[in-house]
Amino acid sequence: MIILGIESTAHTFGVGIVKDEPEYILADVRAKYVPEKGGIHPREASLYFMREAPRVIAEALQSAGLRMNDVDGIAVALGPGMGPCLRVGATVARALSVYFNKPLIPVNHAVAHIEIGKLITGAKDPLIVYLSGGNTIIAAFVAGRYRIFGETLDMPLGNFMDTFVREVGLAPPYVVKGMHQLDKCAEESKEKKILNLPYVVKGQDVSFSGLLTAALRLVRSGKVKLEDVCYTVREIAYSAIIEVSERGLAHTGKKEVLLVGGVAASSVLRSKFEAMAALRGVDVKVVPPKYAGDNGVMIAWTGLLAFKHGITVEPERAYVRQRWKLDQADVPWGDP
């Protein structure tokens, strides 16, 4: 069985092609929208997607050495994400599905991050820590769904980090050579000073908006070194994430942690996770940077799992769902 998957929830228009036996991944082509300044502008991103879509699809098929007729189904990320971006992927997928008479498979983007992580790392029944620009979620599979045990009460970690470095003039670009500007700036702190900034953990939830406001105020006061603020902010934000993850482990009794999403690529964060996991005697599995960010392969792979469990959608009913939460998606294949 061969599935073609389309990702277009935020900054990346990606097409992946997978099959249900090793080597699994047949094609992975992406077009990433990089704003000149500021954050993602959904309309700009969607216009970019429209220009790039035909090329990306053609290249994916070509690199897999396949034609559309060889494909058994079209999977598409219908949410969560930015409306204009999602609609490009959905429109393209519906068109392919109808024109080539292929089943259309709806995929939840958050579930896809988890499934590709499980495929590549071999994690079986992990506590999932999903960190990206738009998501900060601690989840685990229980009875047919990925249930949320902790999340952010306001800003996602990635958005928090991006906003902070942008506001203090360090970005864009947000990530240079695989290192986030916040990590880079924090590493320059010689004294590793911990300034008086708020650390907010509520149960299994984190909150970053108060930290952002206080940190920006501190930078603007001009009384402290920027790198010391970066260091404090980074230590507080990462520690809070690890703390809620550790709570999630204690609560669920899971024996492995799976880090997924774009922010999982941070090596500083990973080493902190490893320190925590060693303490608790659990394994840490991290999606390698190549598949940590948004891509079409994860959509194709999740689509394949879904298709095998009979999940399809009629093209005329394949609406995008901007707020399709992780725990609203059925995962009939999820039993470890």
Partner: peptide, 13 residues
């Protein structure tokens, strides 16, 4: 003490 936390932040918390 948590090995993943900065020692000063750790003591404070």
């Amino acid at each position: 003490p948590k090995p993943y936390r900065d020692p000063k932040l750790d003591l404070r918390l």
